[in-house]
Amino acid sequence: MIRKLADSFILGMIYGAAFFSVMLLVGIIGYVFVKGFPFVHWTFLTTVTSILRGSTGIAGNLVNTFYVAVLTLVFAVPVGVGAAVWMNEYAGGGWGVRLIEFTTQTLAGMPSVIFGLFGMVFFGGTLGLGYSVLTGSLTLAVMVLPLITHNAREALRAVPDSYRIGAAGMGATKWYMIRTILLPAAMPGIVTGIILAVGRIVGESAALLLTAGSGYLLPQSGRGLLHKVLESGGTLTVQMYLSMSKARYGEAFGIGVVLLCLVLAINLCVRLIAAYTKRIF
């Protein structure tokens, strides 16, 4: 009898813990939306903060976030996918793979402040890029590399060996096989990695604060669009941190709403791809 009571008590705690996790999510999303929704309007999304007009806007930060995300992926995706291909298709085990597994895992466990410090002195200092969108993107590329590699590798592993044997049997060269069979088959996994990476980029703040700075202006059109890459640019998260520190809470909550929408959209994409992959395999 005592045992039954103890069992139900512990089961109750298990249910309680799970309920707590769900309530946490609901609470966070609900709170941010309720508090932040009044601030999200057209001007907020399409203009930059102006002291003259006394208006706040995050258009510059939105554009910066977009720049940083795209540039980071341009650097990280080829390298990450390439690494996965090498590990799965060329290396065939051995010390090389173990070393790369170790370093990838090390990168995955590195806190973003460390990436920030490194990016600041290496890309910003040694390479002379200063506080800029480019510095930030290069830094984040190192940061999301493990994510891309890991997902691409898992996807490559899931490609059945019969594909490889079939292609080899038809006299295809390795590169041809990788290009025409393996990479397309692994595409859902690669795309999942990319989307997860976007999630990390959008949510990142510490590393970017130290490397990309906090500029909030929109790029000039024409040449300025390119030039923006070498200018300082604060993403949404960085701006949100700064708003919080300066006690501009309304603005912070408004950005919070935008960020949560992005996070939800990203999560939805990952789920859709997972469902799609399940259907075709």
Binding site: A18, S21, V22, L24, L25, V26, I28, Y31, V32, K35, G199, V202, G203, E204, S205, A206, T237, M240, Y241, M244, Y249, A252, F253, G256, L259, L260, V263, L264, I266, N267, R271
Partner: peptide, 25 residues
């Protein structure tokens, strides 16, 4: 599946938002 999805979403929430909730609540 539902609770798992919630946990996955929690993992995706940016740390600044956690900080903001912590500060305000």
């Amino acid at each position: 599946a539902t609770v798992g999805a919630a946990v996955e979403l929690l993992a995706g929430i940016p740390s600044v938002i956690y900080g903001m909730i912590g500060m305000m609540v």
